[in-house]
Design a protein around this nucleic acid. Sequence first.
DNA 1: CGCATGAGGTAATGCGCATTAACGGCGTCG
DNA 2: CGACGCCGTTAATGCGCATTACCTCATGCG
Lengths: 369, 369
Amino acid sequence: MVAKEAAGRARPGRAPAPAGRRARPRQAEVARLAGVSQATVSLVLSGRDLATGRPISAETRAKVLDAAHSLGYVPDPAASRLAAARNNLLGVFSFTATFPTDVRHSYYPFLVGVEQEAAAQGYDLVLFTGSSTGGAGAGGAGALNRVRLADGCLFLGRHAPADELRRLVADDFPVVHVGRRDEPEGLAWVGADYVSASREVVTALAALGHRRVLLVREDDDAPASTDRERGFLDGLAASGLPAGPEAVFRSGDPRRDLTADRVRAWVADGVTAFVAEETDTGAAWRALRAAVDAAGLDCPGQVSLALLGSPPADLADGPAPMGFDIPRPALGAEAVRLLAARIAGGPAEGTLVACAFRPGATAGPPPAP
Amino acid sequence: MVAKEAAGRARPGRAPAPAGRRARPRQAEVARLAGVSQATVSLVLSGRDLATGRPISAETRAKVLDAAHSLGYVPDPAASRLAAARNNLLGVFSFTATFPTDVRHSYYPFLVGVEQEAAAQGYDLVLFTGSSTGGAGAGGAGALNRVRLADGCLFLGRHAPADELRRLVADDFPVVHVGRRDEPEGLAWVGADYVSASREVVTALAALGHRRVLLVREDDDAPASTDRERGFLDGLAASGLPAGPEAVFRSGDPRRDLTADRVRAWVADGVTAFVAEETDTGAAWRALRAAVDAAGLDCPGQVSLALLGSPPADLADGPAPMGFDIPRPALGAEAVRLLAARIAGGPAEGTLVACAFRPGATAGPPPAP
DNA sequence: CGCATGAGGTAATGCGCATTAACGGCGTCG
DNA sequence: CGACGCCGTTAATGCGCATTACCTCATGCG
């Protein structure tokens, strides 16, 4: 038994609209008022007739537009999106609150660029907060799955779980990670070019006459750290300086390990310039400054210092260190561009953005021996 | 001619999906994998079976959930909304960039609260960027209409066009404005209780012994300004002080109009305390401080100063002025709560949030005559 | 004069999900 | 032992819009 009389059957589906809420006009009403079909209304209002050479007479256009205007018609975005199979939403997933209470340590500078570029590309932003549990259906495990709601998604922070990302990538869901990242094969990312920027800093020091330069870094193998080290060593090599492992001081707790004595010993040994990597906490830089101070060394005079990044906000005043600035807003904007390209079917590439060299006031020629 | 053989007709409608990208899984795929119908999937995933006593066997539930999980299924928000459900998305629409380049003058503090409360209520945030143009059909005019994609929307900033808002309100779309607002009748809002807070400041000055207090305000009739003035006058009256129009100095350009001479004249005339309103730019407060300085008056000693709000960030250091702090994060959170209530069918009310009095260090007893 | 052509429009269909009447298989009650 | 109620599931339907195959004319052309 396949067919039944329509007459005999009650109609399932949507219940009649609750009387309370007055409905907005639909294209169907506009069509009725204009004396045309709904399809025509859609064509006229979407401008598809002009764009794709779909001919609609000026007279009909006018009738439709009049009707739409007099009814105060506005399209239902949900319906448009459904029919068009996209929603013009870009996800932004960060693994901490997107709006941390402490403004300064945050993704804020990225978001400045992200918002601007997203607007320029006609996207709205959906903020997914790591903590929010998601709908009942999704379940807690695949919280990351929520992002599939958008046309594509940006990821901020180094704590993105590789396997969940891998899954998204495998499904060809458009994803862009902010920050260089190797882990899931085929992941698109945008990152700062720490290698070049660090090399440039070392080169500048060498140009000032320094012959022994030491890198102080923390004990973390994030790409951001290894890239800086590589650039540092490259720079040494390019300047004809010894670039062996003794040029790098690595410590899990610089504040403890980087003592004034140690600094004095290095200086006695011929080191004239120190370079610290920048991290979230700025631990290496803080420790370096403190140790140099404690050793009673005058900064531009007796030793030169440089920071591979920007100083933490609480050290913002005082002389700017030689180093470089990460163009975070530009990175954010680039990430959006790349994501938009991915959504449009482009390849999943990695992009490096150049950092701006900052001469600063903490480096000068080495003291005469 | 009404009916034709189905066989002879080609099928209009959506073109087949472009082969390149694998589409997100739909409920239909989940259903197939679980060996049930799409309707069952919908019931299980939405939890409607449990909630409304619609019985689904535990076994079936498990199969469906497994399938959904292994496919990485997530519901399409547009479709959910279209089907008259909800998508757990809260819109945030601001009429300037949500992430201004200058962090300090921004909606940031609101968003801190908004994000937190939204997460707590299980909503994700959609940032609608004011500048983005919206769909071609809508034209620039109905850009605000995009927000209908979400279950409801928060509006930030005083530049929300009244007529567009009116339209949303008329359609009973859940909207909450951050900041008190009269204009569209029936608009829900949350605002700071400037009236009470301002009254309290004046009362405190009166308690210190001041008998002549002057309000310096700018030339803007936003509710935020008029409320402060009202509270100021209320406070005078409540303290038995003259509350005539001569107690208010209003200027479109305080920096120009508020001269040292003028201040000296007021003081000579018996004024012992000055109160400035807070605005975006802090113009009134800046001008007042400058004029008092220029007049060579000692602040807590010869004149007392108060600020109806928080000092601008660039004046943040230095002695805190007497005044009050607007609990912006709390306001944001309250706005979300109210919006959630609206979505659930609650009334469109206005809510005032209390400000915290700040004794500060710029007010003391008036000098002995 | 007969047919191709193009202009102007319409009918039908589907997007993905929520909703609900109906259905079939049970155990039970009268 | 047939009517009935309960359960679990499904089929059918619509939300509002975009898309496209097709239809109907009026014209142009050989």
